[in-house]
Simulated scan of single mutants.
Amino acid sequence: MSDVENDRRKRKKEGTWDPTNMRKAVEKVINNEMSARQAANRYQMPRTTLNDRISAIKRGKEMSTEPLMGRFHNTFSLEHEKILVEHVKDLGNRQMPLNRKKILYFVFQLAEKLKLPHQFNKEKKSAGKNFYYSFMKRHSDLSLRTPQSTSLMRAVGFNRPQVARFYECLETLIQRFNFTAYKIWN
Rank of each mutant, 00 (worst) to 15 (best):
T16V: 06
D90N: 06
L50S: 00
K24S: 08
D52Y: 08
A155L: 14
D18L: 05
T75Y: 01
Q119S: 15
P147A: 04
A36G: 06
R42M: 10
E5V: 11
A155C: 11
R47I: 10
E5R: 08
T150I: 14
L78V: 13
A56W: 03
T146C: 09
R37P: 06
Y167K: 13
W17S: 00
V163W: 05
L144V: 06
F179I: 06
K24G: 02
Y105I: 12
K12A: 04
R160W: 14
N93Q: 10
D141E: 10
S35G: 10
H87S: 06
F131Q: 01
V88M: 02
R37K: 15
V156P: 09
A164G: 13
A164Q: 15
S126A: 10
C169E: 15
C169P: 05
N74Q: 08
H73S: 07
V85A: 01
S134A: 02
M34T: 03
L98T: 02
S55N: 07
I103H: 00
T180S: 15
Y132F: 13
L68F: 11
E33N: 07
H73E: 04
M69I: 10
S134G: 02
K10Q: 09
V26K: 00
F76E: 00
R8M: 07
P97F: 02
F131L: 03
A181S: 15
K101N: 12
M1I: 10
Y43L: 04
E168L: 15
Y182C: 14
G15I: 01
M34P: 01
